[in-house]
Computed example of a mutant assay.
Amino acid sequence: MHLVQLLLPDFSLILCGYLVCRYTALNRKVWEQVESLVYYFLFPVLLFQSIVRSPLDLGGASSMMAAGLLLGVSGIGLAYALPHLPGLARLIDAREHAGAAQVAFRFNSFIALALSERLAGPRGLLLIAVLIGVCVPLFNVGAVWPMARHGGIGFGRALLRNPLIIATALGLAANFAGLRVPAFLEPSVNRVGGASLPLGLMAAGAGMQLGHLAQQKALTVGLLAIRHLLLPLVAALLAWALRLDGAQTLVLLVFSALPTASSCYVLASRMGYNGPYVAGLVTLSTLLGMASLPFALGVLGRGG
């Protein structure tokens, strides 16, 4: 496995966005428009197409779905509990936590799809599609709720107006109804969705200010420890408890140790939170994925 090669393009795009924003005429005003394009159009198209691409077999994939949902609930619960742990309440700013909590449980879908196909072939793609289908709605709601609550925005209103959640709901509805993107439109839809990944990562780099990470050391360490250490451990326990087979265990471990979603930055920024801080977390998470994926697959996978 060449995990470094797989993660290097994402990190390179973040670095590229950082350099372009600071050393060319394409400054923050330009990248704010890019963020809007990614958030309101490109990412929703990617989510919709990712969910409708493969039929979800609710019966045959029940164990995998249960594992994904339990892993997701564990990640959300740990992220929400972080400021309430003994000794951390005075070290973690509530507003910063609301905007950044999503980093602990959301995932980079591009790396998920690429790794699952490389490691487990067509079945790996089907299994990761199941996890994306059941976990993306949960994770999007989990990401929006603390920001809506802390910002005084009605939760229902925030969900109904969030383009990522709208796209997820429409994708699930289309999948369960047996609808697919017509073959003649699929190449265009794939290109639109694919554009969201490089632009989202470059926008994260453009908004990145690593100095913000030092201001919230406890929050930074806590969220990244959940994402890259605790969730792989939970995944290994779930695979054992639910008696998942080899391919299911492999994909679940990959899913648990992925870098966080690049759209975390766009969501936090568009909802009025500290985008530069979240962009720094996305960057660090991409780097930490080079350690957490070998840990999950090499140490925990072999142990299982």
Rank of each mutant, 00 (worst) to 15 (best):
residue 217 K to I: 15
residue 218 A to K: 08
residue 172 L to N: 00
residue 206 A to I: 02
residue 217 K to Y: 13
residue 178 G to W: 00
residue 254 V to C: 10
residue 235 A to M: 02
residue 197 L to I: 09
residue 246 G to M: 06
residue 217 K to N: 11
residue 226 I to Q: 11
residue 265 Y to M: 07
residue 212 H to E: 15
residue 216 Q to M: 08
residue 156 G to N: 10
residue 164 L to A: 00
residue 167 A to N: 05
residue 246 G to A: 04
residue 172 L to S: 02
residue 228 H to W: 06
residue 217 K to L: 14
residue 204 A to M: 03
residue 238 L to R: 00
residue 270 R to T: 13
residue 265 Y to C: 04
residue 239 A to Y: 10
residue 167 A to P: 01
residue 253 L to A: 03
residue 199 L to E: 09
residue 166 I to R: 12
residue 173 A to W: 09
residue 238 L to W: 01
residue 182 P to L: 11
residue 262 S to C: 00
residue 256 S to A: 08
residue 157 R to P: 07
residue 223 L to D: 05
residue 210 L to N: 06
residue 256 S to V: 00
residue 211 G to R: 14
residue 176 F to A: 08
residue 244 L to I: 12
residue 242 L to N: 01
residue 236 A to V: 12
residue 210 L to T: 05
residue 273 Y to S: 03
residue 251 V to L: 03
residue 202 M to R: 08
residue 238 L to N: 01
residue 255 F to K: 11
residue 214 A to G: 15
residue 179 L to I: 01
residue 207 G to I: 10
residue 217 K to H: 14
residue 250 L to C: 12
residue 257 A to K: 05
residue 259 P to V: 00
residue 194 G to P: 03
residue 269 S to E: 07
residue 275 G to T: 07
residue 241 A to D: 04
residue 222 G to A: 04
residue 218 A to D: 09
residue 174 A to W: 08
residue 166 I to T: 05
residue 187 P to A: 14
residue 277 Y to N: 02
residue 191 R to F: 10
residue 270 R to K: 15
residue 162 N to T: 01
residue 191 R to H: 13
residue 236 A to C: 14
residue 204 A to N: 09
residue 173 A to T: 05
